[in-house]
């Protein structure tokens, strides 16, 4: 199925196809890896919306990437519960291992490191989310192993 058809099929679940914009953005991001303007325009075209509207929606949510991200995405929760039990040490461990600052992508485009708000794993803190999979809890000692997996995989 073409991306356009997939977007339309997902939107058809709703009484109003406008509601399909988020699922459409999700599908487009899966295909492109992020949401370049062409992807936004494609979602707009599929759903009979304007690209401006689609971009307005996409930019509202943290999980849509409007700039390129690495092949792998490492996200560290630094909200209260994680912070209280050492999230900052985990951030620093990743920064060390990856040679990146939080918010940066490695030069080879392999990894993006970023901090995120509460991921809903406060009882298993600190929470690290690698490629949308939760690693709970992650201690600074676990970091070299995770980075090794990313480099090996």
């Amino acid at each position: 199925m073409s991306l356009r058809d997939e977007i339309r099929a997902a939107a058809a679940q709703y009484p109003d196809q406008r509601s399909g914009v988020m699922s459409g953005l999700g599908l487009a991001q899966e295909q492109y890896g992020w949401l370049p303007p062409e992807a936004l325009a494609e979602v707009a075209e599929a759903l009979d919306l304007t690209p401006a509207h689609v971009q307005a929606v996409a930019s509202f949510y943290d999980m849509y990437h409007l700039a390129p991200v690495g092949e792998h995405l490492v996200e560290i929760c630094t909200n209260v519960s994680c912070a209280l039990v050492g999230a900052q040490q985990v951030v620093e461990a990743f920064e060390r291992e990856l040679g990146l600052r939080a918010g940066e992508t490695s030069e080879d485009g392999k990894v993006t490191l970023r901090t995120i708000e509460c991921a809903g794993g406060c009882g298993y803190a600190p929470v690290v989310v690698v490629d949308h999979r939760y690693r709970e809890p992650t201690r600074p000692d676990d970091v070299p192993g995770i980075v090794g997996e990313l480099n090996g995989g």
Binding site: A67, A87, V91, A102, G103, R114, T115
Partner: peptide, 10 residues
């Protein structure tokens, strides 16, 4: 100490 809040991605 030093806790980093999310860097705005967009």
């Amino acid at each position: 100490e030093g806790i980093v809040a999310p860097v705005d991605q967009h």
